[in-house]
Write a protein that binds this DNA or RNA. Sequence first.
DNA 1: CGGAGCGGTGAAGAACCTGTGAAGGAGCCG
DNA 2: CGGCTCCTTCACAGGTTCTTCACCGCTCCG
Lengths: 235, 235
Amino acid sequence: MPARILVAEDDLKQAELIRRYLEREGHLTVVVHDGRAAIDEARRRSPDLLVLDVMMPKVDGLDVCRVLRADGEVPIIMLTARSTEDDLLLGLDLGADDYLTKPYNPRELVARVRTVLRRTRSRAEGQVYRVGELEIDPIRHEVRLAGRLVEVTPAEFKILACLAASPGRAFSRQQLLEHAFGFDHYVFDRTIDVHVMNLRKKIEPSPGTPAYLKTVYGVGYKLADATTVVASDAP
Amino acid sequence: MPARILVAEDDLKQAELIRRYLEREGHLTVVVHDGRAAIDEARRRSPDLLVLDVMMPKVDGLDVCRVLRADGEVPIIMLTARSTEDDLLLGLDLGADDYLTKPYNPRELVARVRTVLRRTRSRAEGQVYRVGELEIDPIRHEVRLAGRLVEVTPAEFKILACLAASPGRAFSRQQLLEHAFGFDHYVFDRTIDVHVMNLRKKIEPSPGTPAYLKTVYGVGYKLADATTVVASDAP
DNA sequence: CGGAGCGGTGAAGAACCTGTGAAGGAGCCG
DNA sequence: CGGCTCCTTCACAGGTTCTTCACCGCTCCG
């Protein structure tokens, strides 16, 4: 499973070393050299993982961590030269998923990366997604509406789970095909429409004016998030 | 030994902090933010441990404790802001296995978790899995249906035990092969079908419409859990 | 207001999935 | 060695689901 990893490290040689090791593992990396850029790139790309040096120009690694933690949940591995327990705890408190103290063995980093990725991935599969009265449980492979079980087909489930993982986010049909069925799935993307229609028949109180599965004209589909569902109750 | 831990804490930051610390220990966590969800998830997943904040919206932590204690024996660690002896005693009376008063050191929590798990695991060794009238006893290597011994083959037993360890969870055929027979077991995964069919003949009242060994179309199989068995009695 | 493009929908064949009987073969035990 | 149980594979049937296509109504925008 290749991951998209953002590396923030001001020492060019170190950065290059890290990049090499990660790419040898098959990951896709983007490298930046200061805290400001780290924040920008992390926001723009939402990578699967951020490898973050603590001491960096412009914005300190700890601050990067704080900022990013405030607006999302990118997994973060911190690299720190200092090794006092206080710093360590501070890093974890700020939301780092793991940390390494310099000097470290690059292969150690690769191992930690693997661990954190496995953790965050299994976490994503373990959570039950809830939107309004709708529940999607990937472990049990069940969909419930107001507690009542709803029968859905495999394709419908995949699409719904993909949408539910990021409520409110609009997906193009192509993205849904890729995320839900895998990259090398050569099908006409209007197929998604049919599955969405069938889903609506099953989970929407009135399929004509969907409360959950929203159409984003010219783009694709999205699952209404809590805000939207509530808002539509009292417009 | 990684454990599956349910964390119920309404403060998002606190919850995230706890999750991180527990996952760094190698545990699998699922996080919920209110008492209602805590009860639902605890029932659905039967986690190895519940970390439970006392003050929570919808349903109070103490009530969650009371409810769960009534229908099972999930180990519980309570987190409480109040520190009067009354609350403490109340918590323990209600069946918490341990408690921590805020503010607490996260590492203290990790230590308590370790202790409680050690304690409950020795208690849980040789646990008999029960689903409806079905009992699977890994120690005695026996399967009983309504108290009557059912003869099953080794392969059938492994599959059934694997399913019974996580009732309600859907397993792919590949997962069943791996979990039940080991990783380097290169067999055609449809073999699982044959074993399931033979199991059904032995334990299902009417193998045509199975009550225990459910097919998850396009995915694999699952063992119905209490919820599902009850639900199918009164649709 | 009109046109171009986009999404909704029903139908139908293709593709896929599971249940099941049968058969070959491995391992075990007397 | 013979007989037994068990595991695995295979092939086919029957049912379910996926995909495509064609057509229509709707939306957006000039």
